[in-house]
């Protein structure tokens, strides 16, 4: 496989990480906490989608909508039960609570849904582009033909749709502008008459909706099991920090950097070293933080 093919893989991975990372980074910036249970939100969204398709049964796009609504509500419910009551205690107790909550959710899902991987039964159409000639340098092909499946196009298309909608929300609506304002200065937001608890609730719902969509897309693209979301949380976290924690635009950029690095390092590292490809994403993260602690988007990474 050539470079072009691996860039496609990287963009697909970057796409669902980005959808999730936007929600993660908004929680970080506005609720001021690292939500380590967030990976489980992806898993729950994916399972709601699979259940809706299998039991009701609804067509996949409708099931995705059901999953997003369910994900939003669950996220709000969990926040009200576990995070809102300890909002004043600071970031560390909230982080620890979320680690515990994630553990409970993960094993709860494992108990009810079992250990096996599930997937959406979709029929993928594959588009092949074999016209590109290989451009070999040693054993590495720097160009080459590639293919893209309809599933991959759906993942990338959804991501672009999400970016546009989130951008519109954050720059054109009162709720969105209030969210950004709270990220800047919560006390001043209150002085302006902003009901900060309502805005926090909105952020939880939005983050839950995005996580559920990312989970469903992950299920379409590969498969989901109880540990799926958890296996993504470090990538999501790295993407958010790489982009400048709290900045949704930075998180998008960070996600594609992570996605591309994962895909390219898997493809082009010598055979014996592919095991460290996921570590390379973190090496880049460390590198960026050493050179530019504020992340790609330039916003200050605050104490957490």
């Amino acid at each position: 496989m050539g470079l072009a093919q691996n860039v496609i893989f990287g963009l697909v991975t970057g796409s669902y990480i980005a959808i999730a990372a936007i929600g993660f980074t908004l929680i970080y910036g506005i609720v001021n906490m690292i939500n380590f249970a967030y990976g489980e939100y992806l898993t729950m969204g994916a399972f709601i989608g699979i259940l809706t398709v299998g039991v009701l049964p609804l067509p996949l796009p409708l099931a995705a909508v059901v999953a997003m609504v369910g994900g939003g509500l669950i996220s709000l419910l969990l926040a009200r039960l576990f995070f809102t009551p300890i909002n004043q205690t600071g970031p560390v107790p909230m982080l620890l609570t979320s680690i515990g909550l994630g553990l409970v959710l993960r094993n709860g899902i494992r108990l009810t849904a079992g250990q096996s991987a599930r997937y959406f039964d979709t029929e993928a159409i594959t588009f092949r582009f074999d016209g590109l000639p290989p451009l070999s340098v040693g054993s590495v092909d720097l160009l080459g033909g590639f293919f893209v499946t309809s599933e991959q196009l759906i993942v990338m298309g959804c991501a672009v749709g999400v970016f546009l909608l989130v951008h519109t929300l954050l720059t054109r609506t009162d709720v969105g502008i209030a969210m950004r304002a709270m990220g800047d200065n919560e006390n001043l937001a209150r002085v302006r008459g902003i009901d900060t608890q309502r805005i926090r609730d909105s952020v939880w719902v939005l983050a839950g909706v995005l996580a559920a969509l990312a989970g469903v897309l992950l299920g379409i693209q590969t498969n989901v099991s109880a540990g799926t979301g958890f296996s993504q949380i470090l990538q999501i976290l790295s993407a958010a920090i790489l982009g400048g924690a709290g900045s949704p635009y930075g998180a998008i950029a960070g996600s594609y950097v992570i996605g591309l690095v994962l895909a390219l390092s898997t493809a082009f590292l010598p055979a014996g070293m592919t095991g460290i490809s996921s570590a390379i994403a973190f090496l880049i993260l460390i590198g960026v933080l050493l050179v530019k602690p504020s992340g790609l988007a330039g916003q200050e990474v605050r104490e957490a």
Partner: peptide
């Protein structure tokens, strides 16, 4: 307030819009 009395990452227009938020 004496300090930090505008939202630094928001535009001037967005700051004014929040002035009339209620």
């Amino acid at each position: 307030p004496q300090t930090e009395n505008v939202f630094p990452s928001l535009t001037v227009d967005e700051n004014l819009r929040l002035g009339g938020y209620i």
